[in-house]
Structure formats: structure tokens, C-alpha cells
């Protein structure tokens, strides 16, 4: 019994000193997505890499992650408040649902904690909230770039497959595709899929196949995630239209990249998530410790188009977990 008490006491002392030691530098709270989300895993790698710099400056990074995406705005707002309660020296977070989260951001600012927006929100939002900066992609321009890329490769009628209809950022992606292609006289309509298909590649593939069979004039398919692009490639192949229907996607994975190399996928729109995590943390660290700030108001990490021209470097980056 005595040993146990002693052990517990020692552990408590070690824990206390460890916390005290960490409190010297910047305590950076980062709010982010689920760790099993392949996209956020790359952001997380950027955060972890930047954390080494923070550690060298005597600080620490605390990654607060969402458990589910079912109530993304409210949950993120709660995590921001958690970070305030922990007396973080700076909070880096995505502004996914402005209506739910902005109040929490204002509470942070009121508590004297500077805020860095990354991944979602945009430059205007950062200015409005008085955030240090915004680092990330803007969905609508990314969609525009995708639409223009489709148009420049001859596609006239593109469907934008949305596996999570109603999510603001995805709607903006599809709207961007539509407006981007409209500039060259083409058109793009959205194909919203019900929640019972989400995460079921066969259901997504069959839905795309059926849509292609119904409308022979469709010559392009855009998907909102890398996994959906794998399903789409399959649906297009089943419909027997691989040579005619071009495939483009937001985000990417290993299989997407191989298809781009083989030539069965036209392109992927990359927002370079590693950069978002890395810059959000390293710039927050520089700001809190030394007052460093970039003169560029919004730091856009995307859209970067990955196609046959830059596929080899991208594959190398993907192998190392950076892309």
C-alpha cells in the first residue's frame, strides 16, 4: 500500500513539473478533425512537424480533435471554449460553421487569446474576427479552378457527385465547378447522394453508373473526396465510358495518383493540407513568442492542380505522408 501511495505521489510530482515546464513557452491549442480522416491525418502531420519548432522554443501543442462530424459546428465551438478554459496562449482552428463557432472565437479574443484560422473560414472571416490570419484553401475558387480545368480539357457536361449534401464547403466546391465550366459555355449539375450511401463505395459507384447511363451527354465527373473518386472511376468503367468521361476530384489518395499516372483520371484538386497544419502552428508560435506576422493577408495553400505534369513529385510526397 505504502509503495502504491509513493508511486502515485511521484507520478503526480512528475506530472506537475512536466506541466509547469510546458507552461514556459507558447501553449498552442489546435482544433482539428478526426484523426481517422485521411485528409486531416496530413494536416496532423504538418502540426506534428511544426510542434518540433514549438518545443524547441519551450512551448507545447495541444491537438483537440472532433470525435464525429455529426455536429461539427457546435462541437468545434465547444473545443474552442475548452482551449480558452485551458488558458491557451493562442488557438488555431478551422471556422467550419461560422454561425456556431464565431461566438466562441469572440470569447477567445475577449479573454485575450489570439486566434489563427486555418482550413476553413477564409480571409474575410479572419479579418472580421480579428484573427491573426487565415491559412488554407477557399472552396469556391478551388471549384472554379476545377471547372476551368475540365473546360480546358474539352468537358461540356460535368456532374458533381456530392456524398454529403448540405455541407457548406462541399456545396461551394460544386458551385465553383459549375461556375468555372459555365465561363466556357459548359454546364455542371450536382448529383446529391443520400446518407445511406455514404462510405459505401459500391452504392456510390452504382449511382454514378446509373446517372451516366441515363444521360449520354455527360462527359465529366467531379467528386468531393478521394475515396469517392475511386468509386467514380469504377462507375465510369462499368458504364463503359472510361474513354469519354473525364474524372476529376477534390483531394487525393494513392490510388487516385496512380490513376492520374496511368491516364484514367484527369486531375485532382489539392489544397495541400500538410502546409495548412504546419503553417498554422509555426506562424502561431512565431506570433505569440516574437510578434512575427506575414504581410500577406490570406495565405492560400490551394488550389493546386495535380495532373500528369507534376504527378511524379506528388507521388513521392504522398509516399512520405506529406500529400
Amino acid at each position: 500500500m505504502k509503495h502504491v501511495v509513493k508511486l502515485l505521489l511521484t507520478a503526480a510530482v512528475i506530472a506537475a513539473t512536466a506541466t509547469a515546464a510546458r507552461a514556459d513557452g507558447a501553449k498552442i491549442a489546435v482544433i482539428g478533425g478526426k484523426a481517422d480522416d485521411p485528409f486531416f491525418a496530413k494536416i496532423k502531420k504538418g502540426i506534428d512537424d511544426a510542434a518540433m519548432v514549438v518545443k524547441a522554443h519551450g512551448g507545447a501543442v495541444n491537438y483537440l480533435q472532433l470525435q464525429t462530424y455529426d455536429n461539427i459546428g457546435g462541437d468545434a465551438a465547444n473545443l474552442i471554449r475548452t482551449a480558452i478554459a485551458q488558458h491557451a496562449s493562442v488557438i488555431a482552428a478551422p471556422d467550419w460553421v461560422a454561425d456556431s463557432e464565431d461566438e466562441a472565437y469572440k470569447a477567445a479574443t475577449a479573454a485575450g487569446i489570439p486566434v489563427m484560422l486555418y482550413n476553413a473560414g477564409g480571409g474575410d472571416k479572419a479579418k472580421e474576427l480579428g484573427a491573426i490570419n487565415y491559412i488554407g484553401n477557399e472552396e469556391y475558387p478551388a471549384g472554379l479552378a476545377g471547372g476551368a480545368y475540365f473546360a480546358s480539357h474539352g468537358s461540356k457536361n460535368v456532374i458533381c457527385v456530392n456524398t454529403v449534401p448540405g455541407a457548406g464547403n462541399l456545396e461551394a466546391r460544386c458551385k465553383g465547378i459549375s461556375d468555372g465550366i459555365a465561363k466556357s459555355g459548359g454546364k455542371s449539375t450536382q448529383l446529391p447522394l443520400p446518407a445511406s450511401s455514404f462510405g459505401n463505395p459500391t452504392a456510390v459507384a452504382e449511382a454514378i453508373k446509373a446517372t451516366l447511363l441515363k444521360d449520354a451527354s455527360i462527359d465529366g465527373v467531379a467528386t468531393i473526396s478521394a475515396g469517392d473518386a475511386d468509386s467514380a472511376a469504377n462507375g465510369i468503367q462499368q458504364a463503359g465510358r472510361t474513354s469519354k468521361v473525364k474524372l476529376g476530384t477534390f483531394d487525393m489518395n494513392e490510388t487516385n495518383l496512380e490513376r492520374i499516372k496511368e491516364g484514367t483520371q484527369l486531375f485532382a484538386i489539392d489544397q495541400q493540407p500538410w502546409l495548412q497544419g504546419f503553417l498554422a502552428v509555426s506562424l502561431s508560435d512565431g506570433f505569440v513568442n516574437y510578434g512575427l506576422k506575414t504581410a500577406t493577408p490570406t495565405i492560400l495553400t490551394g488550389p493546386g492542380i495535380v495532373d500528369a505534369s507534376n504527378i511524379d513529385a506528388t507521388i513521392a510526397g504522398a509516399k512520405a505522408g506529406y500529400r
Binding site: 478526426k34 481517422d36 480522416d37 485521411p38 446518407a195 445511406s196 450511401s197 455514404f198 462510405g199 459505401n200 463505395p201 459500391t202 459507384a205 475515396g227 475511386d230 468509386s231 469504377n234 489518395n253 494513392e254 490510388t255 496512380e258
Partner: peptide, 20 residues
């Protein structure tokens, strides 16, 4: 079989199967 069919595997796909 889905991984072999679609040439890729993700850690988070399949929740919809529970309900379905």
C-alpha cells in the same frame, strides 16, 4: 473484397453498413 475491388482502403468507411 471491397479493398481488392476498388484498389484502396480507408480507415473510416462502413458506418452506413450498420444501419443498412
Amino acid at each position: 473484397s471491397q479493398a481488392i475491388l476498388y484498389n484502396s482502403a480507408q480507415v473510416s468507411a462502413g458506418q452506413s453498413y450498420i444501419f443498412n
